[in-house]
Simulated scan of single mutants.
Amino acid sequence: MTDTASPTTRRYGSRPTMKDVAARAGVGLKTVSRVVNGEPGVTTDTERRVQEAIQALGFRRNDSARVLRKGRTASVGLVLEDLADPFYAPLSRAVEEVARAHGALLIHGSSAEDAERERELVLALCARRVDGLVIVPASDDHRYLEPEIAAGVATVFVDRPAGRIAADTVLSDSFSGAREGVAHLIAHGHRRIGFIGDRPSIHTATERLRGYRAAMADAGLPADERWVSLGATAPERVRAAAEAMLGGPEPVTAVFAGNNRVTVTVVRVLTAWPWPVALVGFDDFELADLLSPGVTVVAQDAALLGRTAAERLFRRLDGEAGEPARVELTTRLIARGSGELPPAGGGAGRAGQMPNGAA
């Protein structure tokens, strides 16, 4: 007998089940299960009848029961450096969208670039039985995770690799991106190019410095240590580094900035500088195209990083085996004007003399 209960009756009565849907559509329970779970083997007409029954009854799949049968909690953790950093916003959103598509809740946390805080956050998430973790690492030693991974917590590292363990990793190709950005400055006549990056303990900072040195070596140019500065991205530190490079006896005519926070501070310094200085930054940032000149950047796709990491995580949760994989995504040079400025005064000022003959 077909169940003809109205949506109103169902709303105030018991929650409709797949058996109710099957009865209304006149099909078997397995057919409803296939439609609900997106499995093949159902004709178009049958799928239509099942979907109409689902809509009429207001049926909702019980994800909680489904994941509990699989021994899961339907939650994953995401540990970032800083949720306030614009770079991590699209990455976080992409992870959340993939988690949502898999019926999972995403729990965020910020490590503040502190290794001990990262460890506390990760272990707290594991204690709450998250199914998996996506981590932007602050630590260089992740052996503390070995018992959790052995217990079945799927783990993927993103933006930077894990330290001292083998794990799935999704990165941007920081080395090649920086090499291309510095080569772009060299192609526009620059020979004295400064590099200002993040702390040397951070993988992306050292990879971008390596790309800078490779580009300089490719062109047969020296990479004077006075033109290189790694450290905290605090504005006062970056400002001091930029001013030292620009005001030294052999001032740089161009700067390569190692990430978006460094780039923003360098832009502020150059805005007030008495002569033009070329600039290329690693990472795009909001309003970069509206400045005058627009800021040339090496752009990485943060959303693609997050999506790739999250999709790999859920493949592991669905049973994909194999050795840990390392995925490197390509970057893209976006020329907007600041990286195409020629060296001021031809870039040939004598030691102790400012470009354009400024005293």
Rank of each mutant, 00 (worst) to 15 (best):
T31C: 06
M18Y: 03
T9D: 12
A25D: 01
A166T: 05
G132R: 11
A23E: 14
A150L: 11
V36M: 03
P251F: 10
A244C: 00
A244Y: 03
P324C: 07
A335E: 14
P235M: 02
N259T: 00
S139Y: 06
I334V: 15
E340G: 03
G189C: 10
V295H: 13
A310D: 08
L91S: 01
K70R: 15
V27G: 04
A84M: 15
L246S: 03
G71P: 12
H142F: 07
R49N: 00
F157D: 00
L185S: 05
E120Q: 12
E180P: 00
A183Y: 06
S92N: 06
M245G: 00
V295R: 12
A214L: 10
W273G: 01
A53Y: 06
D301L: 11
L106M: 13
T17F: 05
L246F: 01
E148T: 01
R69D: 03
E225H: 04
S172N: 12
P249I: 01
A310N: 11
G132Q: 10
D283S: 12
T4I: 10
A22Q: 08
D82K: 12
V298R: 08
V267N: 06
V156H: 11
A325H: 13
H108S: 08
R208D: 01
E96F: 08
D289F: 02
H108I: 13
G346W: 12
E225Y: 01
G26I: 09
V122Y: 02
A115R: 03
E320P: 11
E52H: 02
H188I: 00
G231I: 05
S110E: 10
V170S: 02
N37R: 11
A214Y: 10
